[in-house]
Design a protein around this nucleic acid. Sequence first.
DNA 1: GCATATTAGATAGCGTGCTATTTATTTGCA
DNA 2: TGCAAATAAATAGCACGCTATCTAATATGC
Lengths: 154, 154
Amino acid sequence: MKTRTAAKPNAASALLLDQQLCFALYSANLAMHKVYRPLLGELGLTYPQYLVLLVLWEQDAQTVSAIGERLFLDSATLTPLLKRLEAAGLLTRTRAVEDERQVIIALTAEGRQLRQRAQSIPQAVFCAAACTTGELRTIKTELEKLRDNLARQE
Amino acid sequence: MKTRTAAKPNAASALLLDQQLCFALYSANLAMHKVYRPLLGELGLTYPQYLVLLVLWEQDAQTVSAIGERLFLDSATLTPLLKRLEAAGLLTRTRAVEDERQVIIALTAEGRQLRQRAQSIPQAVFCAAACTTGELRTIKTELEKLRDNLARQE
DNA sequence: GCATATTAGATAGCGTGCTATTTATTTGCA
DNA sequence: TGCAAATAAATAGCACGCTATCTAATATGC
């Protein structure tokens, strides 16, 4: 006599907030962001800026669109973000000589050095998430638990 | 001889983009948003606005903070959002008589009627996600698959 | 060879989502 | 009673993330 929340949803029950995977995803993402914010704040970074640096730490000197493909973001989002990182002295933006439509994003020495200070972040987030690695659950249950664990850190 | 991506991460490998649960979550959320945007656009709604309506369709006439607790959002986010929904004629904002610090958010007839037009959305998203209900995977694998399925719809 | 199409990136304008602060109201306690 | 503390919502200012559009550079085709 268990309630089976995901089985054969009708149109009405499908509109219940707690039925929605998307909301579990949305709220888990917000909660994750709240954990990252203070950690990255110490480095003077926002979360999307941190993602750009992760990409560049793996492979330096990429075009705007290559970074965008990796992060699923486009130039309208990346251009101002990259300008802020340039203003912070973490990277340079230079037109490619072989194709002047392209802008090459490359780390500065300061941008490379920031990697050391970022080393502790994944572990800190892992602790905040309070999940063990091998767990197997449905994605919705996992996301809700993650969300609640993260929210508890505040 | 399998690669065990989640086992005993060291500080360096933990900074790899694809190692990060947070990025799976972030990118899956972006992808989900991209699926919702055109569906909700037909109703003249954004995704957070839709979430507010989901909450009100379940229980009408709630305070701003009650809605915020349900959605994990605060008044700085909700106030302008609710004003836009008010301007669209979907809800009313009235000070509570018993405690004038509170603002009661209540659906208009138009706001209630919109529920019918929203009935088809969960099924449409479910199709876009292309997931079967009973799957059991690690959350990271699930999110990545979800993200890629969603991205394929574009 | 020159017009057209395509591509890469930038820009404009909008709607979140946040922190920090402000205002108005209510509560609580000396 | 009176006044400080707490509470609810609003506001200011910032950074995404989007669509739509624009500019500049390159590729294509007759």
